[in-house]
């Protein structure tokens, strides 16, 4: 097990840390947005996650680590984590990949709209490589299940660990993350956790929409 496996960096419930947006007040009928992480906290959280991944380097047995982000926000998060890890240790070999799970989802027959895939980009071999699968939000666990299927089509990793920025504790499949940024208690399916990350988005912010 990694040193701090499972333990979140900060525990948040939806009732605390209410920061008002600098926007005109919304009509009562519209949805309310609550900021879970602002830009400074996101940067801090990414740095702490990078430190914990780096502290577990001994587990990698000298093999070059791969950070594989699930498209699209997971890919950005993986790149930013890689930048932070490189800052901690400029010598460590690190690969970054982007995984498209559209073709592996289990809801082709039940979903309401079709998804245009963005493609997988992994320019390295997965065989015998330690892999950290990266996503912005861990929710039902279905995306992660699809990601496992997608990953093993590329090879047989030494191990796969899961890193998420936000763990929304609302699981439908038995999946747990090894590295967690924050935990959010938002059991209502109507609530949505929205992550925006630079440089793809124009700001760093995590919202809870209720």
């Amino acid at each position: 097990m990694p040193s701090g496996a499972g333990a979140p960096l900060g525990m948040l419930s939806s009732s605390i840390r209410l920061i008002n947006l600098a926007l005109p007040p919304l009509p009562a009928t519209l949805t309310a947005m609550q900021i879970l992480l602002d830009a400074q906290h996101i940067q801090q959280t990414i740095r702490q996650l990078a430190q914990r991944v780096h502290a577990d380097a001994s587990l990698h047995n000298g093999h070059a680590l791969a950070l594989v982000g699930i498209r699209s926000r997971g890919e950005i998060l993986a790149q930013r984590l890689a930048d932070e890890i490189a800052r901690l240790d400029g010598h460590s070999k690190l690969e970054v990949g982007a995984l498209d799970i559209t073709m592996y989802r289990d809801d082709l027959s039940t979903r309401a709209a079709i998804t245009i895939p963005q493609g997988t980009e992994m320019n390295f071999r997965l065989d015998d490589r330690p892999v950290i699968l990266v996503d912005d939000v861990l929710d039902t666990g279905r995306s992660v299940r699809a990601a496992f299927d997608a990953l093993v089509d590329f090879g047989r990793p030494r191990f796969i660990r899961l890193l998420v920025l936000v763990d929304r504790e609302r699981r439908e499949y038995p999946i747990a993350a090894d590295y967690v940024g924050i935990k959010v208690d938002a059991p209502d399916p109507e609530q949505k956790v929205l992550v925006r990350l630079r440089p793809t988005d124009d700001e760093d912010v995590v919202y809870l929409q209720t």
Partner: peptide
């Protein structure tokens, strides 16, 4: 939309396992 989807799927044919479970 078709061309972008095809661009994403082109990679499948370069794998050792040339198959995805979509259909």
């Amino acid at each position: 939309s078709i061309l972008d989807t095809a661009q994403s799927l082109k990679e499948v044919s370069t794998r050792s396992i040339k198959k995805v479970p979509a259909l």
